[in-house]
Design a binder for these strands. Sequence first.
RNA 1: GCGGGUGUAGUUCAAUGGUAGAACUUCAGCCUUCCAAGCUGACUAUAGGGGUUCGAUUCCCCUCACCCGCUCCA
Length: 531
Amino acid sequence: MTTHEATSSLDALTSLSKRRGFIFQSSEIYGGINGFWDYGPLGVELKRNIKQAWWDDMVRDREDVVGLDCSIIMNPRVWEASGHVGGFSDPMLTCRQCRRHFRADHMDDLIAQSDWISSLAEVGDMDEHGMLTLDRGKLERWIRKRGRKQAKGMALVKESESHLDAVARTIGEAPRALRDVLVDLGMPGLPEDSDPMPCPFCGGDLTAPRQFNLMFKTHIGAMEDHSSEAYLRPETAQGIFCNYRNVLDSYRIRPPFGIAQIGKSFRNEINPRNYTFRSREFEQMEIEFFCHPDEADAWYTYWRDLRYNWYVKLGLHSEKLHLRDHDPDELAHYARACADVEYDFPFGTSELEGIANRTDYDLTKHQEHSGKDMRYFNDQTRERYIPFVIEPSGGVDRAALAFLTEAYTVDEAPNDKGEMQKRTLMKLHPRLAPTKAAIFPLVKKDGMPEAATQIYEACKKAGMAVFYDEKSAIGRRYRRQDEAGTPYCITVDGNTVSEGTVTVRDRDSLAQERIQAAEVPAFIAKKLQGE
RNA sequence: GCGGGUGUAGUUCAAUGGUAGAACUUCAGCCUUCCAAGCUGACUAUAGGGGUUCGAUUCCCCUCACCCGCUCCA
């Protein structure tokens, strides 16, 4: 796909979304605000339907997952335990390989503690002033013996041939300070905006120190001092971990079980981009699934495949949807396995949902920081353990954007003169469509509006999102609904009055069939179940 | 955050250092028996703020927003 096509398809989706009321810019009359978006009448229905489908499929229809709704502002100590606070309020370096974050002012300590750096220093000769001599031979030996295990992210280790020459020239044979040697090893070929020091954990390249005010800060109460500081949650997961014991103690459930939550999270992104894809306020749908450590791998695979297939089932069935397992090098430090559900957006392939095996990392951290026992006691096996956690974590807004992108279609349909014309339609899955059916009288006379209104009322009574329209020509009304993604149009015509039938027009095929007017609600209900 | 680009009705596009125009949409009415039909009419725009100028939508500066590349992530 060329850039031009990519741009125009996102532009086309953006204008349709605005024109029809799916997505608006936040605070638009004041010039907008970067990283925030609003959902219009159709958009909010789409989003609700996505969340409802997720909740029905992941919570209501299951015996082993229960729901939860946590507060957005939590005790700030939560974020100390999770590593979001402390770490994130000072200038930080991020490893591009292992994605760990380091405080810039802790780098010397981290270097001193690093396994790979100390093993490297041992291979060389350190004099009494701490000056290190390291030649090419020693370096090669270290890479073979230790580097491949201890510093997997290092360019020097991964592509030693090409980098070794350049590095060997730089380090020379004169004794040098350890820090200078390390800087030289990180070279060459670093992207701009990098720190010259290699990652103390994996040897990968680090970004330059950056201010990481990831979390939105606020104050509790009227006084704005340090003690009143609080944060808007940057993820919903921690609320679940904090309530893990409460759920276990109050609800008759035991591992393996999951806790699900849908809710807003906030991240003060440096650079929001790509329409609603990366915004500063976003909605997540997350499950933390707690299980025995021995079963974690199996549950991980189970959830990864289940979540992928959920998107397929709801209409992302094209070749644009991918399930991508992370390489071991790519894993976050707390994760043992991770996979992304990715979608080919017009702006590139990007993540809709991540499924991770987070091990017992989070519960252990909360146990340490809170002093509360997070172990589960299995009275059958007499075993006490901290459960492992499998986390399927999806973005609602990202799902909405993917479904909209997938649904956006331009085809050709005949007009009343039989000429072919371009037609824009949103091929949304009936479960996700904001309006399930539109009900029209063919013309505004001969008792048709009355008959159509009756059907409309019957559908509403059956709990369906339906729309009634009698304005302007029938063809225009059909096209309007095409852009709104309404899968079915029910039209009352002369035969409705005489024989009690209506036509059902299918959005995607334009095919029409006649059914009994009285059967309309049941007909739509059946279609919604995918029959 | 860095670099590049863009900003005119709801949408898509015109034009201009001196009066901003269209198509579609929307709304009202007439007409209409199945795919954006026709006729009549109506509403609506130079992102915000400074500067230059007799006069700025146009030229300059700042801010904001959006798009593209790097970066980052649910």
